[in-house]
Structures are given as structure tokens and as C-alpha cells.
Amino acid sequence: MKISQEEKDRNKQQMIDAATTLIAEQGFAKVSLRDISKKAGMSQASAYKYFQSKENIVFAFFEQIQEQCHEQLLQINDFHDFCLEEQLQCLIETQMTLLEPYRVFLNEIHHSTMTLQIFQTMTGMQPAREKMCAMIDDLYGGAIDAGEIPQQRHHALIVRLFWDYLFLIILYWLRDNSAHYTNTTQLIEKSLLVITAILRSQLLDKSTDLINFVIREHVFSLFDSLTPAQTPIKNKRRFMEKSNVKKR
């Protein structure tokens, strides 16, 4: 029986909802794909068509958060008038707001054998990461076009670093007990000020230039001093001739 894309999406959503609820209740290790499919009201076989493992559901969850974040940022009328710090802070805060209902779930994942950091770096996370990077790339490119920050040589690297930055913030946020997570908001604000200041001053480009210079000029010349001087060596025996001598 062929099912429509709409139905597929609905089934996927049911699996994600079931997984986040069950994992929040019982912990990541104790929940199996079978439990999840049961909770979602599907047979294990059809559940398997969507997700081959529970890790995959977590990947899909993060991908969905990125899509929702994208949607929400589009709703802000004057978002293009915000400066880069404000835009980035809005993006991160929106992610936090979207993640808030899943705080217990995220805590459970983080405390399982697979910590959030491991999840973050897994290849399955690629689609979610690409989606976030696309947003960052757009904001970042927009700021460069508007002359807000200068062109950077390590454009792609900087964009990707934001993915790690997001997880850093999530980890801090999971431990933040202040009202309305004010401490996280402040961490985001202060750290983004530092990040944008680095981008403005092209510190990253300049420091790689500096490292380049140090390596070329100093480390390589240090190698020169390690090169042994050409001193006369006593005559050696010929190659492969020692054993031959014995044989004779």
C-alpha cells in the first residue's frame, strides 16, 4: 500500500513525539525502538522504514528544531534591520525557546552513555547542521554585504563553528536554573559580543597569518639548526655485503 508524503510526515512526527516523551520519562538507554513504535501506534516494521535506530530519531529531532527556527525567524518583520549580534542572539534564543519543552529529554540524552557532545559530532547530525549553517551563512553573508563586518578568509570554518557554539550554549542552559534562563541569555549576549568583535577585527585571519609567519620564520629555521653538519665519515662497507663476507 502506498502512503502519501503527508502521512509519512505525520508518522515521522509521531515517532519523534513518542521518542522524546519516552526518553524523557525513562532515559535514553532504557527505551528501545520497539517501545517507541508502540507508543507511536505503529508496527515495528513500519517504524523501521522511517528510523533505523533511536539515534536517528534524535537527529531528526534536531533537524526539525532547525526548520522551526527558520520559520520563526522569517516571522520577525524587521529582522533584517537587526545588527549581526542581535540576529545571532535571536537565532540562538529562538532555538532555546523551541528546545525548552524538551529540556528533560535533552538532559536524559546528555546523561546517557552517548553525551550530547557525541551526538553533535555524529554524521547523522549532518542534515540538522547543514540547516543551521545555512541560516548562519545567510546572516553572516548579509552582514558582510552590508559592510557590517569585513570579508573573512575562513568563512566556511566560522559558519561551522557556530554549530559547536550552539551545543556549548545548550550544555550551559541545561544547567542554568535562573529565572527565565537569564544567565544563559547573558552568556549568549556576552559571548556574541566577543565573537562579533573578533569577526570585526579579522582577528582570526590575522592570527592565522601570525601563526603562519611564526612557523615559517622561526620553527622552520629551528629545523635548519637540527640538520647535521657535513663532516667526513669513515669508509663504510658496501651495501648488503656483510652477509656475503660471512658466506664466503
Partner: peptide
């Protein structure tokens, strides 16, 4: 900062400024 203004509204009303106000 405008991001913080949005956050303050969300903290208080649980919704974004666009949802609460026409403008």
C-alpha cells in the same frame, strides 16, 4: 539589544511580539 527585548516579551507572555501585537 533588540533580541533581549523580544526575550523579555516572551518571558512575560510566552509569545513573540508579532503574536501579541499587530505591530
Amino acid at each position: 539589544n533588540r533580541a533581549i527585548v523580544r526575550k523579555a516579551i516572551q518571558n512575560e507572555f510566552g509569545a513573540t511580539p508579532e503574536q501579541i501585537f499587530m505591530q
